[in-house]
């Protein structure tokens, strides 16, 4: 300790300008303290972080990226129940896009994803704005709204299945209360079943959107709202013209998060409808699972998985690009 101290003091005094903030970042100071540190603590400090990270790095390298490559290769083979490695070209992709069931899955994804994101955002913003009015039990309400997020989609799906099954949940309750004309059979109606997934998904994710937007709203300087009031804007105009437009980054990240929840939705569908009735509520993820693991069509399943990966990258890459570019330009 005592040996390194004179070094530091030297560096401080050497500085030509008198800005004390710069002292710590001054290259000379940094370089000298670096040298001193290395001499004292040896090489363990250099290697320890790398050693600690190595296992997880290796695991993700093999089990994420390795298996992506493997799946990618399998999608170009005629693998059925077991993997085969003879190159077969685009045959699985041709089969995939010729399959009506795949088209249903893709349409369902658009429908489910679109409605899920839209309703989550709209409801989330609305509830966040209402919660932002400095009400007394805000903490309690916020927790209640956020609680569904703590459940897994399996639990959500199962619970909503009980509630929506005509002979068991809502419909039965209404009948028992005497409203015998009431029907709510969306869960077993092939045209409407996809909307029950939207309902359950919205129920689970809205609280999260509320939390994100509430944080965004709280980040807005009170003075801006005061300024708008002095400028003559009413509450409605303050929200529509100033607050919500300035939450654009929150909209963007919420869209990203909800978007990828929608694309990888699997458990919710499995628990709620199992893809049925028939295959009317299949999503690409359940399609992939069905073909790869239950119908012995690994090649076709892999092809659908690669198409999904492409879709997700299509959403995520522009986002990553803009994030990283933002950082580089400080």
């Amino acid at each position: 300790m005592s040996k390194s101290e004179p070094l530091k003091i030297d560096a401080v005094i050497d500085l030509p300008d008198n800005n004390p903030k710069d002292t710590a970042n001054h290259p000379a100071t940094q370089a000298r303290t670096e040298v001193a540190k290395r001499g004292r603590r040896g090489t363990l400090e250099l290697w320890l972080p790398k050693l600690v990270v190595a296992p997880s790095f290796l695991l993700s390298l093999v089990f994420v990226y390795g298996f992506i490559l493997w799946t990618g290769y399998l999608s170009f083979t005629k693998s059925r129940l077991l993997p085969k490695y003879d190159w077969a070209g685009f045959i699985q992709y041709q089969k995939l896009w010729a399959s009506e069931r795949w088209w249903v899955a893709c349409q369902n994804l658009l429908l489910f994803g679109g409605l899920f994101i839209l309703i989550c955002l709209a409801l989330g913003v609305l509830i966040a704005v209402l919660l932002d009015q400095r009400i007394r039990i805000e903490g309690t309400l916020r927790t209640i709204y956020l609680y569904p997020m703590a459940l897994s989609f399996i639990v959500t799906g199962t619970a909503w299945k009980w509630m929506l099954t005509p002979g068991l949940g809502l419909e039965k309750l209404m009948h028992e209360w005497g409203w015998t004309g009431f029907t709510f059979d969306w869960l077993v109606n092939p045209d409407m079943a996809i909307y029950t997934i939207v309902i359950a998904g919205v129920w689970q994710s809205t609280g999260f959107v509320v939390a994100l937007f509430l944080a965004g709203l709280r980040g807005i300087d009170d003075a801006i709202i005061k300024a708008a009031r002095v400028d003559g804007a009413g509450t409605w105009r303050i929200y529509t013209r100033i607050i919500i437009p300035s939450l654009r980054p929150v909209f963007f990240s919420t869209f990203m998060i909800l978007g990828h929840i929608a694309v990888k939705s699997f458990d919710l569908v499995m628990a709620l409808t199992g893809g049925g009735p028939g295959y009317s509520t299949d999503l690409p993820a359940t399609f992939m699972y069905t073909y790869a693991f239950t119908r012995g069509q690994i090649g076709l399943g892999s092809a659908s998985a690669m198409v999904m990966l492409g879709g997700v990258l299509g959403i995520v890459l522009p986002y990553l690009y803009s994030e990283l570019r933002g950082k580089n330009h400080g």
């Binding site: 003075a223 009031r229 654009r248």
Partner: peptide, 21 residues
Amino acid sequence: LSPKDRDIAMVFQSYALYPNM
């Protein structure tokens, strides 16, 4: 009277410019 009817203008410490405009 509400602020908008008082015929005043105000400058804030944090400037309070509307960030989206």
